[in-house]
Each structure stands twice: as C-alpha cells, then as structure tokens.
C-alpha cells in the first residue's frame, strides 16, 4: 500500500510544504497588521510571478502529500486495494490540484 517511492514522495513534499506554510502564516500576520483590504492584497499578488511560483509549488506539494496520506487512511479503514485505491489516490491528487490551481490563478493572474 505504501512502498518506498510513495513514502519518499510524501516526506519530500512535507519538506517543501514546511517552509512554505511558515511563510504563508508570516505573510498573513503581516498583511492583517495594517488592515490591508482584499483589493490591496490582490493588487500586490496579481501579475506577480513570485507569488504564482510560491503558491503553485505549495498547491502541487499539498496535492501529492494529501493524496498519499488519504490513500493510507482509506486503504486501512475501508480495505480499498488495487485499481480502486490507485484511482482514489489519483482522483484526490487531481481534485486538489484543480481546486488549488483555480485559487492560485484567481489570486495571481492579472
């Protein structure tokens, strides 16, 4: 169910997510200090390649990490195996990628 490739992929994506999460929280705290409005935040993020890469990487890492984690939970709890388990894993990964990409595009695309 969880071979070394999936195990390593989950650990590597966790390593990517850790600093990005801290950066995300730091920016949130910074942004609310001065009472920035939504329009003011969007004026800074829209058209920014840096924020596109930052949150794009975040979404990709989260999608892979969460899909593997949910795969283990579903397999152990509901005894899902084989193609059904692979389909579930890819489905969750694709869904999170789609939802995350939509959010990133809405915030960073001009």
């Amino acid at each position: 169910m969880l071979d070394i490739r999936l195990y390593m992929l989950q650990r590597i994506t966790a390593l990517i997510m850790a600093p990005l999460t801290l950066g995300h929280i730091a920016v949130m705290i910074y942004a609310v200090q001065g009472g920035l409005t939504t329009a003011e935040i969007l004026s800074r993020t829209q058209g920014s390649v840096v924020w596109l890469v930052y949150y794009g990487t975040f979404v990709a890492a989260v999608s892979i990490h969460a899909a593997i984690g949910l795969r283990v939970i579903i397999a152990e709890t509901f005894k899902l195996r084989g193609m059904a388990l692979s389909g579930f894993t890819w489905g969750v990964c694709g869904l999170f990628l789609y939802m995350g990409a939509r959010a990133v595009m809405a915030v960073t695309m001009p």
Binding site: M1, L2, D3, I4, L6, Y7, V72
Partner: peptide, 9 residues
C-alpha cells in the same frame, strides 16, 4: 522491506 507491505507502512 521497501515493497507495498514493507517497513514504510
């Protein structure tokens, strides 16, 4: 120990 039923579970 690195297969589908291995130590990583």
């Amino acid at each position: 120990v690195s297969g589908v039923g291995g130590c990583h579970n």
